[in-house]
Design a protein around this nucleic acid. Structure first.
Length: 352
DNA sequence: AAGCCGTGGAA
DNA sequence: TTTCCAAGGCT
């Protein structure tokens, strides 16, 4: 066993975090935790994990749930395909494996929403399978320790660090190895200002010895997102509010929202009103009761909010585009995007 | 393969 | 204010 692995495992004995999914060895709970924690910090995912496990304690309860209920428990966490995929996967598991999770990475990879990392994590942590789980933490720790400039977002880089991790793992306890690597990455070998003096791997870390920790990991592409402006329209009749469910191929798939008009940021200020007038196919513009201007900018998302009074004719026209009329007291059951959730809460519109 | 999917915290 | 990016996976 290498010095790397020996020191890592020894450190883990005294410094591992006390996390709920580590308190037992239920593969289902390990699966849930791994999916929740994809691209998500422990602090952010922890309350979601607790609520999710409480409501869906096993594969069967998840398989039997309605998708809306599953999405509701994911509301606000983001990357909602994770919830949809887990829901589908639970049904898949009930049909193929009698509700149990398979034990090999290869079989796990066939499950919806389980990729190379999650398959390795479940196989190693739940079943002791000897494979390294290479996540963002592992990429960071390994690339610094070996001062490796291979881009971690290239296919060559992924293969290199996977092989490297597997070699270091050797015949040691794979679950502990992987979780130890994650704990070091999350708490010590952090993206910025790593706490090297507390690191069990400081002695042989090449990046530290050269004081070039900030240079790793190397990524070839930089992420940038397009800017979008959403204009949410609150349209109500006596008892109900107009909602629609978002479709595939875009953000917030499967979630519910107020009818919206998207306008490119470059468009003129009231372009949405023209669009709505066209949409409702009348010469008269819909009456605006009130609106919020730039209620919140959510990263690159600009959210606007308008309460409208429509003529019966306009409402009819709007109904043509798969509008669902939701009673006021049913709104709270709908999974909605975070910006809309905050909007409804601020305006006190979710209760009646 | 490259682009996309959410949200919140930190600097 | 802007930028980065966190226990990735899908198309």
């Amino acid at each position: 066993m290498t010095a790397f692995t020996t020191k890592l495992l020894r450190w883990y004995q005294g410094h591992q975090r006390d996390l709920p999914w580590r308190r037992q060895n239920d593969p289902y709970k390990i699966w849930v935790s791994e999916v929740i924690l994809q691209q998500t910090r422990v602090e952010q995912g922890l309350p979601y994990y607790q609520r999710f496990i409480h409501r869906f304690p096993d594969v069967g309860s998840l398989a039997n749930a309605a998708e809306q209920d599953v999405l509701k428990h994911w509301q606000g966490l983001g990357y909602y395909s994770r919830a949809r995929n887990m829901h589908a996967a639970a049904r898949q598991l009930c049909n193929q494996y009698g509700g149990a999770l398979p034990k090999t990475p290869e079989a796990l990879r066939q499950i919806k929403g389980i990729g190379p990392y999650t398959a390795a994590a479940i196989a190693s942590i739940a079943f002791g399978h000897p494979i390294a789980a290479i996540d963002g933490n592992a990429y960071r720790v390994l690339s610094r320790y070996f001062a490796s400039s291979l881009p971690i977002d290239s296919s060559a880089g992924r293969k290199y660090f996977q092989d490297l991790g597997n070699q270091l793992l050797s015949d040691g306890p794979s679950g502990d190895f992987n979780q130890a690597l994650m704990d070091v990455g999350a708490g010590i070998c952090t993206p910025r200002q790593p706490q090297c003096t507390n690191c069990p791997l400081i002695d042989e870390c090449r990046a530290y010895s050269l004081s070039i920790q900030d240079a790793f990991p190397v990524k070839s592409k930089s992420l940038q997102r397009r800017e979008r402006s959403f204009h949410f329209l609150w349209v109500e009749d006596e008892n109900c509010v107009a909602f629609e469910q978002r479709q595939a191929g875009d953000i917030w798939q499967g979630l519910y929202q107020l009818p919206l008009i998207e306008q490119r940021p470059a468009d003129s200020k009231n372009a949405w009103l023209k669009t709505l007038t066209k949409l409702t196919d009348t010469k008269v513009a819909p009456q605006l009761v009130w609106h919020t201007r730039h209620l919140l900018t959510h990263q690159n998302l600009h959210i606007y909010f308008y309460k409208l009074r429509l003529t019966r004719q306009q409402t009819q026209a709007l109904s043509n585009k798969s509008i669902q009329w939701v009673p006021f007291n049913n709104i709270a059951a709908l999974p909605v995007p975070r910006p809309l959730e905050q909007l409804l809460q601020q305006k006190g519109l979710a209760r009646h």
